[in-house]
Design a protein around this nucleic acid. Structure first.
Lengths: 148, 148
DNA sequence: TTTACTAATGAGAATCATTTGCAACAAGAA
DNA sequence: TTCTTGTTGCAAATGATTCTCATTAGTAAA
């Protein structure tokens, strides 16, 4: 059993929940997707592999994966929440191009440290950090961004 | 005419759009709300003052206010976008309590500078910055956050 | 000021992601 | 096997946001 399966089964055990086949399929598929994905993509990917898991079950599994520390709601684009799995991924911030949709990831320990300090100042327990810069990427800014 | 009305009328003029009564009411109400607000709150606030502006008109005005640089979509909580007007407000980050919904604001120039540097590194033109820490505030962390 | 043109509005229907209710199901305990 | 309880799939419900379209209201010209 791989690392993330172990984390998830332990988590479920603690919650007295079952590591069902549907949950296994969802977990494996989540970790097979290496980009930010939305629920519909996850659903379609599962369906393509001849598995059958309903959307409802997926929607119900997502909060579990998040609570288990395996998944993160990373950003929202085009009215959809996008997720990404966490697997030794360092936390990172996103530069999101509003024109072409490109997403650039950047790891910056300094930002991270500063944010942690702020949390400590307020006695705030961080569960999730989201940093995103929206605007135009180098390609799109050339084209002209005056009246989007 | 106050500052924000001037900015908005200039903006509308440039776009060859009209400074109608509905838009005036929306603008004034947006600037009367000094917290983060969602569309429903804005709608109810307008209705309470015996004005009548439909939800559709509000939804149509919001992107204009944003484009005019007067309003910012600042965060998303409980599946609703929350907005805040910009009126000499320095940019700031949010600490959002997932338990009680409290929102703490913090201004931090160091974070801001670091993010600007990252944008420069990628030749990225920032239109909007969003930094939010989600978790539990000092009050809620005491109560126990193990199984939310 | 009246006319005429067009953008803007209001009301409700439509959309679309997400959630929920419920009957059928499955896995483990007794 | 039978009982218990959590899980699932389906379809209906929800809720924020967008769209349609008939009507209204600014505004420029007459």
């Amino acid at each position: 059993m791989n690392d993330y399966s172990k984390i998830f089964t332990d988590f479920l055990l603690r919650k007295e929940m079952k590591f069902t086949n549907s949950r296994k399929i969802i977990l494996d598929t989540v970790f097979s997707l290496h980009d930010h994905f939305d629920i519909e993509t996850l659903y379609e990917t599962i369906k393509t592999k001849h598995n059958n898991v309903s959307r409802a079950t997926i929607y119900r599994a997502i909060p579990l994966l998040i609570e288990a520390g395996l998944l993160k709601k990373s950003l929202r684009s085009l009215s959809k929440d996008k997720y990404e799995h966490i697997f030794g991924h360092p936390s990172h911030l996103h530069l999101i191009c509003d024109k072409c949709g490109k997403i650039i990831e950047e790891v910056d320990k300094d930002v991270e440290n500063l944010l942690n300090k702020i949390a400590i100042k307020y006695d705030f327990k961080i569960k999730e950090v989201n940093v995103s810069l929206r605007g135009f990427c180098s390609d799109c800014v050339k084209v002209g961004s005056s009246n989007v």
